[in-house]
Amino acid sequence: MRAVQITEFGGPEVLTQVELPSPTPEPGELLVEVSRAGVNFADTHQTENSYLTRTVLPVVPGGEVVGTTQDGRRVTGLTRGGGYAQFAIVPEVTAFDVPDSVDDLHALSMVAQGATAWLLLRRTAPMRRGETVVVHAAAGGVGTIAVQLARRWGAGRVIATASSEDKRRLALDLGADVALDSTTEDMAAALKDANDGRGVDVVLDMTGGPTTDASIEALGPFGRLAFYGMANRTEPTPVQLVRLMAKSRTVAGLWLQHAFRLPDRPVHRAVAELFELVAAGELRAVAGGDYALSEVRRAHEDLLARRTTGKLLLDPNR
């Protein structure tokens, strides 16, 4: 089968197309003929060996796929790696049947980015009706869905941040009330100004570094920040507990993998609800590019250079 493999760590240049044997599923696993794989920021961390878990070489990257099983089921799900290939293994526990009314773009968008946005707003930093929600990287895969969900679930104000005028316009089209330039020098002041001088209630942050520091500063009493990524590769300033106590602030983290271990199955509830919204035309994924497998390096380059919006797809058959 055609696949992309990493044999050394580095940037997009280490992604190499190769021919490999198709994987063999174990009990509790599905062999999926991949129609599309998702491309995520986590994949760029994996090529550098800078993600939450360490990577053992050689490896086929790719954490999510959509396709068809050997018995004809159309499924999407999270892999344990190996998604950038014509065939991939998906554990049954992280697999979801895809309704006919949901296309590949939306299937992949909802199983990872959509479920993440749902969990951030429902569980990690639960949003209450009427509250102000800040969505950083609002034109990205999680951000575009989070803006729509926050608006749908009754946010009093949705403040988006993005790096270009086109991305900010997209965030406004999706339901944001205000769209700020993410390169603003004093982000804490900008967020408060956009909220009529008051501290904000919820911040969804996948950026890290100074953006996180400013966002914590912008939280009002009982404000919550949910941290779910580190796109700029810079660690935030260590959080001082006294700063949290001073305004009863909360800072929390989310890694989607952990949610699959919970007995109430929140990811399955999230994906089912999101698929229903997609089928009803009430939630949409933003297409960020459909790349051939042979263009995988360009996909990573575009993602790292912030040239993309929404969800990036990889076609293993091209």
Rank of each mutant, 00 (worst) to 15 (best):
I6N: 12
I6R: 05
G10A: 09
G11S: 13
G11H: 03
E13D: 15
V14C: 04
L15A: 14
P21F: 08
S22F: 02
V32F: 12
V32E: 12
V34E: 06
N40V: 10
A42R: 09
Q46R: 15
N49R: 00
V56H: 13
P58K: 02
V59L: 14
V59R: 11
T68Y: 13
G72C: 11
T79F: 09
G82Q: 07
V90Q: 08
E92W: 10
F96R: 03
D100M: 07
D103K: 00
D103N: 13
L108W: 00
G114R: 03
A115C: 13
R122N: 14
R123P: 09
E131G: 06
V133Q: 02
V133C: 05
H136I: 09
A138D: 03
A139M: 09
G141E: 10
T144L: 04
Q148S: 01
L149D: 10
G154E: 11
V158I: 07
V158Q: 03
V158T: 05
T161E: 04
E165V: 14
T184E: 13
L191D: 06
K192S: 11
V200W: 00
D201L: 03
V203H: 03
L204W: 09
D205A: 06
A218N: 02
G223D: 08
Y228E: 08
Y228P: 13
T237C: 04
P238Q: 05
Q240V: 09
V242R: 14
A246D: 12
V251R: 00
G253I: 01
L254P: 07
W255S: 13
L256D: 02
A259G: 10
F260T: 12
D264H: 08
A270P: 04
V271T: 10
L274D: 07
F275C: 07
F275P: 02
A279G: 09
A279M: 08
A280K: 08
R284C: 10
A285F: 08
G288C: 01
S294C: 05
E295I: 06
V296M: 09
H300E: 12
R306W: 09
T308M: 05
G310C: 07
L314A: 02
